[in-house]
């Protein structure tokens, strides 16, 4: 954040001085038209920033108000800080349990997605063998399947899984998250592995390293920037996933955060503990908030990578 601030300051420096010289210089008509436009464009940017920022900040300040205050005076700042909202959310509203469930599922599935996705992508990017293109396009096609069409059969695949039902289990959800993250991960990482030089891997092989060892000790470290981008992408997508758990994870003690929040929100009414709901939303947002603040550039480039060729 600090480098950003510095940049912002230096950015503002010359612009501000340019404004001064313009005002001192002869009035040509053009600068004034430009500055009217500037005020206008800046004004709209500020308005949109407020439209996005204020509702999010509203959750934060409402998380310290009591239910009555949230309902009857939504714009009012908290007069007394109701810290108990947070413990109510964590304990009474079960957000603690949902948080742990989410962390287990997402932890497992992000690691699984990254390991399996980059393994498949590496093979598809670097080796020629019959069926290579077919498997690649099989994975990529998955990006265009509407998940809604798949949830019904998927529900029964999990219910009737040989051995025991995978519905409402951690490992079932983890496997499903991995499967649905593979298309984009394979697509992205295949392109990434193609951009890496082949010479380093060849040198390692000549030195006697096996294919497996070359992959884990040479290629993976080289692919780190790509892995970080796509890892964050998968983390955010899986942390915020709502449809898949709602269909496949319908048991309250196994709920993930999005399900828990939706459940509380759907039981709307004046007897509802709105303060706890707001605190619960903050709890659910916190990990994402931290990741986004630290990795802003990677998050933005990772999430938009799919749309840029």
């Amino acid at each position: 954040m600090t480098t950003e601030e510095i940049e912002k300051v230096t950015e503002r420096g010359p612009a501000a001085s340019a404004g001064v010289t313009r005002r001192l210089g002869p009035a040509t008509g053009r600068p004034s038209e430009a500055s009217v436009l500037n005020v206008f464009s800046h004004g709209i940017l500020v308005v949109w920033a407020l439209m996005v920022g204020v509702p999010l900040l509203w959750v934060l300040w409402s998380a310290f108000k009591d239910s009555n205050g949230i309902l009857t005076d939504p714009w009012g700042l908290p007069t007394v800080l109701h810290w108990e909202n947070w413990s109510n959310a964590w304990n009474d509203a079960n957000m603690g349990q949902y948080f742990v469930n989410t962390a287990i599922v997402v932890g497992g599935s992000v690691v699984g997605t990254m390991v399996l996705g980059s393994m498949a992508a590496y093979v598809l990017a670097r080796f020629t063998f019959p069926g290579n293109r077919f498997i690649y396009y099989l994975f990529v096609a998955g990006m265009s399947f509407p998940v809604f069409m798949l949830v019904i059969p998927l529900f029964f695949v999990l219910r009737d899984f040989p051995g025991s039902s995978l519905l409402a289990t951690y490992h079932g959800l983890i496997l499903v998250y991995i499967a649905y993250s593979l298309p984009f991960t394979v697509f992205f990482m295949t392109a990434f592995f193609r951009t890496l030089p082949t010479s380093v891997a060849e040198a390692a092989m000549i030195d006697g390293a096996s294919h497996t060892r070359t992959f884990f000790q040479v290629m993976v470290p080289m692919a780190k920037p790509g892995l970080i981008s796509i890892g964050i992408f998968n983390f955010l997508g899986q942390w915020n996933q709502y449809l898949l758990p709602m269909v496949l994870n319908q048991q309250e003690d196994k709920y993930v955060l999005t399900q828990g929040l939706a459940m509380i929100a759907l039981q709307q009414g004046y007897e509802n503990d709105w303060g706890a709901l707001m605190a619960g939303m903050m709890i659910a947002m916190l990990p994402v908030l931290i990741v986004y603040s630290i990795f802003q550039r990677q998050v933005q480039s990772g999430l938009t990578a799919g749309a840029l060729k």
């Binding site: 996705g117 998955g142 949830v151 029964f156 695949v157 991995i178 649905y180």
Partner: peptide, 19 residues
């Protein structure tokens, strides 16, 4: 390297698509 990713993908994405 391909077996496990393909298996998971086949069971949870491709087979539901066909079904």
């Amino acid at each position: 390297f391909l077996a496990l990713p393909l298996l998971i993908y086949g069971v949870f994405v491709i087979s539901p698509f066909v079904q």
